[in-house]
Amino acid sequence: MSDGAKAAVLHGALIAALFALHFVLPAYHHGNLARVMVLATYAMGYNLLFGYTGLLSLGHAMFFAAGMYGMALPVTHLGWAPGPALLSGLAAGALLSLVAGALALRTVGVAFLIVTLMFAQAVYLTVLYFAEWTNADDGLVLQRAERVLWGLDLSDAGVRYLAALVLFSVCLVLSLWLVRRPFGKVLIAIRENEARAEMLGYDVFAHKLGAVVASGTMSAAAGAAYGLLFGYAGASFAGVQYSILPLLWVLLGGAGTVIGPFLGALFTFYLIDITSGFTTAYMAVVGVVLIALTLFAPQGIGGEIRRRVWRGLP
């Protein structure tokens, strides 16, 4: 069996397993897994930029927030239906990523990281400044009637899970397709040796900008879906924490692996959930576990699977 066929089977089996879990999970874990799938989609967007292109960003919360508020503001203030509002969130994320990418990519290395962080902070402060519209830290609460898409009530637990699964599946397949296409191969070449990729005649700036736009749009899709599925859009989602979390998920799950963001988001979510049930100092326990995982599995869970089990894992 070719590597392409193996990859299709592996990722298809993951989607099938998540679908099967819909029918057997208890309510608590059912809701948790729906949330994890949306957050894993956000991490997949980050992975396109960091894991495959080698660009370290600390500003991805701005794309997540752009999608979230691009969806929630029209619903709340203009009475838009969820369908057009979701498209509005995607458009907001795509436009912001295009502008931010075109400016930030004029820098390299640590400067790129700092510039993306500055952009994200500007977005966060903008959300706070226009509190009359965004409701600042209190956020916007979407009513049940505002969360009906094509006759489906997204506040219903079963519908919400399946909607999260559809989003996750589409982005997983899209990521797998993208990294196996020539565009994705060029991104990997840029990550490994940018000067050599440029010497071979590739337009490095255009490919990196394309990666930023694809990454930002996917992250915006996750933000818009999160707001719609869970009925809330708040300023905290534009904060620095939500720029650090996808980096953590990708590093733990395996940067540069399609399946890694899901593994990292799932592991981190349940690590915090389980340890918080035993001690109030759960973040200290989480920190120790994460440090140990970093020391003994520096390539992340997916990276270790690639190193030990299947060298061709995409």
Rank of each mutant, 00 (worst) to 15 (best):
G93A: 02
G109M: 08
W80D: 04
A72D: 06
L113M: 13
F112A: 09
A92D: 09
L117V: 06
R160P: 06
A81T: 11
V141S: 12
F119Q: 03
V179R: 00
S175N: 09
L98R: 11
S88D: 07
S97D: 09
S155R: 07
A92E: 01
S169F: 00
L98I: 11
A164W: 01
G79F: 12
G70E: 09
M71F: 14
L128S: 01
G151D: 00
I190V: 14
F63G: 14
V123L: 12
A111K: 12
L103N: 11
V75W: 14
L167V: 00
A91N: 12
A66V: 05
L98N: 07
Y161F: 01
L149Q: 05
L152P: 05
P84N: 05
H77R: 09
A100K: 10
L117T: 05
R160H: 05
L174D: 10
I114E: 07
L96H: 10
V108I: 10
T76L: 10
C171N: 06
F130H: 11
A111G: 15
V127H: 06
L58Q: 10
E132L: 13
E146F: 05
I188T: 10
V159C: 02
G93D: 04
R181P: 09
W133A: 15
A111N: 14
L167S: 02
D153Y: 03
L125S: 11
F112E: 10
L187Q: 12
T134H: 04
L167N: 00
D138R: 11
L187R: 10
S169R: 01
A92M: 06
A91L: 15
W80Y: 03
G83H: 14
A66G: 09
A72S: 08
L96S: 03
W80A: 02
D138L: 15
W150Q: 09
L103K: 12
V159M: 06
G79R: 12
V75G: 13
L117Y: 03
